[in-house]
Structure formats: structure tokens, C-alpha cells
Amino acid sequence: MTITTSIDNDKLLWMYQMMVTIRRFEEQSKREADAGKLRGMHSSVGQEAVPVGVCAHLRDDDYVLGTHRSHHHCIAKGLDLNAMMAELLGKSTGTNKGKGGTMHIADINKGMLGANGVVGSNIPVAAGVGLSARIRGTDQVSVVFFGDGAANQGTLHEAMNLAGIWKLPTLFVCENNRYAESTPVEYSVSGESIAERASGYNIPSVIADGQNVLEMYEIGGEAVRRARAGEGPTFIEAQTYRYNGHFGADNPLTYRTQEEEDYYEGRDCVERMKAHLSQTKVATEDEINEIDKKALATVEEAARFADDSPFPDPEELTTDVYISYP
């Protein structure tokens, strides 16, 4: 599609920096996992453009809800990298004090209402957040990211119906990375697309190139505008690709081809954005290198912070079960 939105340079550079930061963070996470310090890692490498393009339009008081694969959502929503990396290592300084780990990172102050380990589980919760904004009379929006696997969960359909009848300020963003664990989308999704399912609920939908952050920005912007204006929900099917396996030890070449991987990696969201910044002279090569270096340094600092942080005290095991308990 042709990008018609004019995007100021600061925003373009922010989006590039976010995507590079996510990429470096996930690479570091993989090293931590390989070293045995992090368990249960689901890498978001390849899918960075989707939340970055959408979250570029969000405020701290807007809400994002994620999935088991949510590091990129959290970073795009502005969470602190030190606290995130500490959480991955189960440290007391983590976003969740070490009690959640990679699949449950949350930070209410930044509007991140949680990654969620159950496929499709967060979608009705996001509808409730939209309902809450409406009842409280604010213009906040909720955005729920989920995968092609969740497109087959009943919760998506129940939540879309509620959002449709109540015109909720909720964005349904499906990151179609083509695989639910090892199961290809061509096998598991009946119909021409996931996006067309929204039409049954009278929700406008669009298929986006999820490897193009500019397109994600444009489509996300219109969806957020509609939500804030009280025009109701939007469904975005962002077509993207998970470069790695479903989880750390998964070899994706047991269910897909090298040719397919090469094709998608050849249209990488970070590289395309870097080329765009150069071609349009938004940034010089030196300026881009500077962003790259800064992203790496931030991630390395997060890794140091996480390593240096203590594990939770044993007493923490039984705190936070309830807010008030006799």
C-alpha cells in the first residue's frame, strides 16, 4: 500500500530505535536462555514492526495486552528494559518482582496490562478495558495483540461481538506469523483471511504488511483515531513472520522450509526501515549507527542490571496472593 501519512522525523527515528532495541533485547534474551538463566522464552524477532507502528500512537494511559510472545509489545509500550530483563531472570527488581517471568510481564503505570500465557485469554480482558474507558468517560484505548493461533479461539469471537455491539475503543491486532506453534495458518484457519472474520461483527478490518512499520503506523493511527473518537473497534491482521522457533529449543525447519525463511528475512522490518531512513535522508549512516550503538548499550546495561540484582527473598513466595487477607 502507499503510505499517505506524513510522519515527522522524530517519530520515524523513534520507531527505528524501538525496533532495533527489541531486536537486540531478544538476542540478549536468547543468550540468557542459552546460559540457562531464563526459562520459557518465546522470541519476537521478525515481528517488531507490528507493536511499534501501533504503539507509536498510544499514550502511557492507553492499555496494551499481550500474549506469551510479548517482549516486543512491552518494549514498544515503553517499559523499562532493566526491569524487563530482571524479570526474565526471576530477580526481585523485575517488573513483576520475579513472580511472572517472560510470559507475564506487566506494568500498570505504563499501561501494559500483561503478557498472558493462555492463547486468546487476554482478548475479552481488552474488551473490558475498552468498556472501562467508556464507562469512566475517558478517551483511552485498549489494544490487544494476539497471534493467528488465537484467531481460532472462541474468546476472540465473543470479544469481537461485545466490542461490536458496545462500540468499544478496542483494537484487535492479530500478528499472523503463519504458525501456531508448528501448525501452519493455511491448515488451521478456514476462510480467505483472519481479517474477514471481523466483518461478521460489523468491525472494520484491514490486512497490513506487518513487516513494514510505516504501513503499521498508518493503519494503527487510523484505528486509534477511530477508537478515541468513539467510532468503535478496528481489526488489523498484520502479516508477519517469526524468524525463530516457537520456543527456544524448537527447530522450525522441521515444519517449514529454508526458502520460506529466506523470503521473509529478505523483507526484514528493521532493514527496510533503515533503508527508508537513508533513502529519504532522514538520518545519515553515522546517525543510524549511533542509534544502533545506543540500542545495544541499553540492552547490555539491562543485562548487567539483571545479573547484579538479587533474587526475591523466600518470604516473597506467599506475599501478593491477596491484597487484604485476614
Binding site: 500498570i108 496490562l113 475479552p124 480482558v125 474488551a127 473490558g128 475498552g130 472501562s132 464507562i135 470479544a159
Partner: peptide, 28 residues
């Protein structure tokens, strides 16, 4: 009807929505 809200028969949908509303300042 904003505060006394009839729902469709979608228990996962509206109980999940109750969770989201409770997490963001309401007492459903």
C-alpha cells in the same frame, strides 16, 4: 443501561471484560 448492562450469552467474553474493567479503575 451503562451501569446495569445486559450481556449476550458470552460468559468468557463478559467475565473477561469484568477482569479488564476491574484492572482499570472500576468495581464490576
Amino acid at each position: 443501561k451503562e451501569r446495569v448492562r445486559d450481556t449476550p450469552i458470552s460468559e468468557a467474553g463478559f467475565i473477561g471484560a469484568g477482569v479488564g474493567a476491574a484492572a482499570t479503575g472500576l468495581r464490576p
